[in-house]
Each structure stands twice: as structure tokens, then as C-alpha cells.
Amino acid sequence: MILGAPDADSAGLYAETVVSGDPSWAGPLANVALGLPVFHIMEPEIKAQIDPEVYKEHLELMEIALDVEKIAEGLDKVRKESS
């Protein structure tokens, strides 16, 4: 699963939902651990695989606006906790 969330909180919430189950215990994924691999589109290991021209057109600006490091840290935490 690839996310485009603008901050660490919302990216983390999505990730947790599809990795270990809905943290708000509200939706159908409450207590359901899908264990899907989840990344943000701007994480370095994903970025490295995208055609640089396409990346520039769609993401160059947002890379300045968003705190990519913090988003990646948040997702790392979710991924590590589930592994």
C-alpha cells in the first residue's frame, strides 16, 4: 500500500489500520491484522524507484512542504512494531 498523507499522524493511522488493525476500533479492520507492506510515496526507498521526471512533475513541491523524515519515522515505527 502506498500513501500520500500530508503528515506523520495521518500516515501512521492508515499504516496501523492495514498493518495491525484499526487503532480506533471502529471500522471493519478493528482487530484484523492484514500485515500489508505500507510506504509513503516520498520515502527514499520508494522515491528511488520512480522515474525522476514523473517525480519532479508531481512531488518536487510537496517534498519541500511535507516533513518527509517525520512521516518515514512514523511509518517505520508501525512497520517495526508489527514485525
Partner: peptide
């Protein structure tokens, strides 16, 4: 599976990437 966000990166942009 692509989940974009309006004020972050939108779905179709992620799709292209």
C-alpha cells in the same frame, strides 16, 4: 493499493509515480 490525500499527495499523482 493507493490511498492519497487531498492536501498531501492525491491518488492519481501517486498512480503515475
Amino acid at each position: 493499493i493507493i490511498i492519497g490525500e487531498r492536501d498531501g499527495v492525491q491518488g492519481p499523482a501517486i498512480e503515475d509515480c
